[in-house]
Amino acid sequence: MSFPNESTGTTGRTGFSRLTGSGSQSRSGRRVRALARAEFVLFGRNRTAVLTALLVPLALPLTARPAIDRGDLKGNLGAVMLTAAIGFSFLYAVYTSLVSAYVARREELVLKRLRTGEPTDMEILGGTALPAVCLGLAQALVLAAGCTVLLDAGAPKAPYLTVLGLLTGVSLSAALAALTSAVTRTTESAQVTALPLVFVSMLGSGIVVPTDLLPDRVAAVCAFLPLSPAVRLVRAGWTGELSAYDAFGTVLTALAWTVVAVFAVRRWFRWEPRR
């Protein structure tokens, strides 16, 4: 289902309308905050989603510590594990939790009712995503501190790259979640429809297996997976192993994926229950 326009929309308004003027922007901010507060309350009531979003990424530094104590792994393990933990945060704190949230709100007719009021489409989607995005960013700060202390990751050599990686990672994860919800029929099947991107990203984007351990041709292909640029920027921010030219290309790739994902959401996001 495409977003309704002025000639075909069922709600009589244009999808993703823009607000102008300081007063409109202020009202928009209040609406987004109100939606985000409500979504945060609903998210907190889903214990399974909370535990999955919190424990999976935060457990990685602790599980890796015994290997360091035995001396099995050396070198830049701290940076590798930090990258993995933040990558898991993209996938679980933001992506999978938001797929379930969008589907649940759609099937409960919450999205349809919201569209009959003042909030614009972007406000509805953004307000729903804001708690998960904030959770992902908060986890990143905790993980950075935990890996620095527990895994001797050290200070980031190019922190601006890590910041770019975090921002592009959570933004793209949220957009991909909205897109995945369009092909998800029920909240029970949300975990299934999210699995392909989760597995592909874990194996090919440098989250579980660092891309420098992959064959050159495989690594070259995997560099263009949706979350690969964000993960690469996060790791490069700690190791400083990315030249300015490569960093610029990586950022452009991340932005390109974000633009494509937003366009796809505008085209195919479903506001009404699937029958």
Rank of each mutant, 00 (worst) to 15 (best):
A254H: 06
R45I: 03
A236M: 05
G71M: 03
T128R: 07
V262F: 06
V218L: 12
L227C: 03
P226K: 03
A140I: 13
V260T: 03
A145S: 06
V208E: 07
R235W: 08
V94H: 02
T14M: 14
P229T: 00
V99H: 11
I86P: 07
T52R: 13
R13F: 15
A153P: 05
V218I: 12
A129T: 07
V208T: 10
A264P: 02
W268G: 03
P159R: 02
G9E: 06
P226N: 02
P229R: 00
V262D: 00
F16Q: 00
P215K: 06
G206V: 01
E6F: 15
S228H: 11
T180M: 04
F90G: 02
T186D: 13
R115V: 04
T253E: 14
S100E: 09
A190D: 06
L255H: 08
L214H: 04
S97P: 09
F263A: 06
V234S: 05
V103K: 03
L143K: 08
V142A: 14
P156I: 01
A67N: 08
E107F: 09
Y160I: 11
V208Y: 11
G9K: 04
C147D: 08
A104R: 14
G12N: 09
L176I: 01
T193I: 09
L242V: 08
A178D: 06
E118W: 07
P156C: 02
A153F: 08
T14D: 14
T148E: 09
L143Q: 07
L225V: 06
G146E: 13
D212Y: 12
L252C: 14
F224H: 11
